[in-house]
Design a binder for these strands. Structure first.
Lengths: 130, 130
DNA sequence: TGCTTGTTCTATAACTTATAGAGCAGGAAG
DNA sequence: CTTCCTGCTCTATAAGTTATAGAACAAGCA
């Protein structure tokens, strides 16, 4: 698994780490049961502090995407999207879409972009790769 | 114009202000040439410091959504979405959509939500309200 | 036992957020 | 010209966030 993290970016490292792992799950690179690298190992990989990785993993745990076990490590464990999550997600989507609309991006183009990204996620999904 | 800002939220006030104004532009509540409240007036309205409003306005200016004139005030002035903006927007959209996909939201449902929000933006647009 | 793993604690430096007050500078209107 | 309103800039402060560091504890496994 390759996680593209930019240490010079203005978005926090732990947030980038979280985002990249969420994307890996969506893409099907990480599936239910996949083992994530140990916090110290991943930190050494990027040359960052293991507390930073810990924070990213903790976020993912709070969002019900992984489970953390001592000795074993972090495992991807998907849980259903509950109403609070859906409400929060929709609000964030609304803001993002508003930004596109305010900047004059055509709605059809925005929708097409979203569709193609969702399709690319579904491409190698844990159904049955023929 | 009613801006819904939550002072107890963990997202910064200036960010919320920016988001609400972007949404107002997308909705057509604010159109090209609309005058925004003065920074001090808006700050007094919410019971916050005018520097905080200033920061929100500055963000909107950097994103080419408003122009700031001394004496006159802040005016909505739309500029075309340039390639850097599109790239940045697409990256953020990718992360948001990945979150939905990772939490198991059906792609059709996500797309339908996006479509309905984009439609609601286009509903009262500065074309010709019949 | 020994190793790896997550977990918790304290501590520090740099940066961000929000507040506050003072003052400057340009445009509008009397 | 003077007055007022506007954005803009400066310094300052308190609280919170981000990232670092080191130490130690606790659960799981071989």
């Amino acid at each position: 698994m390759i996680l593209n993290v930019d240490l010079t970016s203005d978005t926090p490292i732990y947030q980038q780490l979280r985002d990249r792992i969420v994307e890996a799950i969506a893409e099907g690179v990480l599936t239910e049961g996949s083992l994530l690298p140990a916090t110290r190992a991943l930190a050494a990989d990027f040359g960052i502090n293991f507390h930073t990785v810990n924070k990213a993993y903790d976020l993912l745990r709070q969002q019900g995407l992984i489970r953390l076990n001592r000795g074993t490590g972090a495992v991807v464990t998907l849980t259903v999207a509950d109403p609070p999550f859906r409400a929060d997600w929709t609000a964030r989507a609304r803001t993002l879409l508003a930004e596109a609309a305010a900047k004059g991006l055509p709605p059809e183009e925005v929708l097409a972009t979203c569709r193609s990204m969702l399709d690319s996620f579904g491409a190698n999904q844990p159904k049955d790769t023929p």
